[in-house]
Structure formats: C-alpha cells, structure tokens
C-alpha cells in the first residue's frame, strides 16, 4: 500500500461504509431470511400447482366463484370500515386535541388495540348476543322489540373491525393533528379565516399526507380480518374473506401451492389499494407540518 492517497478503509468510510454501518447487516439478513425468502418461495410455490401446469392455481382462483368472490367480500368489509374509521377519527381528533387531559381517553382507546381481535370477538359474542347488555339495553329503551342480531354476519365483522380499528385510526390521526403547529391556525384566524376555512385551507392540506398513511395502515389492519371473520362472522358465506380461503387451502386441504397463490393474490390486491392511495398522496404537499424555521 502506498502512503499517498486515502486507504481503502478511508475511501469506504467516505462513502458511509464503516463499522457502524455494518450494524444493519444482522437485521437485514434476518428480514431477508424470514420475510423476503419465504415470500419469494411462496411466489415460486404458487406456480407449482398440483395439476402440473404453471398457472393452474391462478386459473382456478379466478374461475371458481367460491375463491374469487373472496376478494370482493374482503374489500366490501375492509374499505367501508376503514373509511368510516377515518371519518370518525378526524373530527374527534380535532376535538380531543383541544383537551388538556387527553391521556385518560387515549388510554381507554388503546385497550382494544392491545387486547386484539380475538378478545374483542369473544366479548362481542356475549355483549351483542341475545342475552348481552347491549341487546337488553336496546330492548329496555324500546328501540327494538326483539334482540338485534349483530354477531354471526357481516355487521358482526364490521363492528369488530370498528372496535379495534377505530382506536388505531384515531390515535394515528391524533398524532398527526397534534403535530401541526398551533400557531398556523392562529395565524389563519387573525387573517380572517373562520373554522371551516381554517380546516379547508390549513389543516386539510397539511393533514392529507398523514391521513393517506393512516388510511393505508388502517386498511392493512382491516384487510386481514381472519379471527373476527371466523368468530363473529359468517365464515362460510357473507364473511368468507380471502384470508379464510388461504388458511383453508393451507391447513385444511394441505394445498400449500394454492394457499401461496391465494396469499400472493391477497398481497397484490392490497398493494393496489395502498399504491393508489399513496400515489394520490404525492399530488399534495408533503413537507414539514410545523411552521418553517430559519
């Protein structure tokens, strides 16, 4: 090695590659081994159907209504519930941001997220069931003369996703809403903007990128509705979502190839929705939401 010019280590360091950078390696390798490799393996497996053709699984999926209808069933539950969650979360987050003691409310709302869909489904079966407090209250108030049938159907799954999904959407929205510098609203007010104009001109454009992310993350949650679709839904029929189809193919028919194909289709459909939303996001402003500082 000559003594002129930088050494190899120095040149690598200049490009940002040194001992510290190597710390990402174990993490990256783990994700490649546990996420990328299985995914690629699944992709490969999906083209090895039992009938020996290449596209057999995909042919079958899009030919059999029993299978392809699950896409529609899944979207019919997950998209409305995500939109409703967002529509509820935004106005409520705007109210809550003015509260001094938000912590109690946010703590209560974090409960269903941490307890998870299985427990919520278990609770719903009883609470919304014919003997449950909800039905009793509805009847006692004279709103209905018989117990409402909520569980074991579309609305059971819908409600379950609302109960676990709304707090998630709300807390995410709240973190975006409170991230907006309050002086911006005050500035708009001094310039003559009323509440509606402040929302339209200041908050909405600043929030849209965050709301797009919130929509995507909430949608991902609602999209894989496996436990609630089985427990509080009608898994053979109206709530036979795509994850049930994949699960049944893998663990009831032991057709891993078809199961992988369904999982790939599931991922592709979800990706299309997320990409559409994120694509729309790039059309709006994406910079900092705090006031610009010098």
């Amino acid at each position: 090695m000559t003594d002129r010019g930088p050494t190899l280590t120095q040149r690598l360091r200049a490009r940002g590659l040194d001992g510290v950078t190597l710390l990402v390696l174990p993490c990256v390798l783990a994700i490649i081994a546990l996420f990328i490799y299985p995914f690629l393996y699944g992709l490969w497996l999906s083209f090895q159907p039992k009938d020996g053709t290449t596209m057999g699984n995909y042919d079958r999926f899009f030919r059999e209504p029993f299978l392809y209808k699950t896409i529609w069933t899944t979207l019919k539950i997950s998209i409305p519930v995500t939109i409703l969650n967002l529509l509820l979360a935004v106005p409520i987050a705007f109210r809550v941001r003015l509260m001094k003691h938000q912590r109690l409310l946010t703590t209560i709302l974090v409960l269903p997220i941490t307890l998870g869909t299985v427990l919520v489904a278990e609770g719903m079966l009883f609470y919304f069931g014919p003997q449950g407090w909800f039905s009793r209250t509805v009847m006692a108030l004279g709103l209905m003369d018989h117990a409402p049938s909520i569980t074991h159907g579309y609305w059971g799954v819908f409600l379950s996703l609302l109960i676990t999904g709304f707090p998630f959407t709300f807390l995410l929205t709240l973190s975006y809403v409170t991230g907006i510098e309050p002086a911006l609203e005050q500035a708009a007010a001094t310039l003559g903007a009323g509440p509606a104009a402040r929302f339209r001109e200041i908050f909405l454009p600043l929030l849209l990128p965050g709301l797009a992310i919130t929509f995507c993350l909430s949608f991902v949650q609602a999209y894989s509705v496996l436990p609630s679709a089985i427990l509080v839904g009608d898994p053979a029929n109206t709530t036979r979502v795509i994850s049930i189809a994949a699960y049944q193919a893998a663990f009831e028919d032991y057709d891993y190839s078809l199961a992988s194909a369904i999982a790939m289709i599931m991922g592709a459909v979800q990706l299309v929705v997320v990409a559409a939303i994120l694509g729309a996001r790039t059309l709006v402003y994406r910079g900092p939401v705090a006031a610009a500082k010098g």
Partner: peptide, 11 residues
Amino acid sequence: LVPSVTYGIPL
C-alpha cells in the same frame, strides 16, 4: 405494510 396473513402463509 403487508398484512401478516399474506406473508404468514408462505412463512
């Protein structure tokens, strides 16, 4: 960003 069921089955 990918639902756990989607990668859970190949995994």
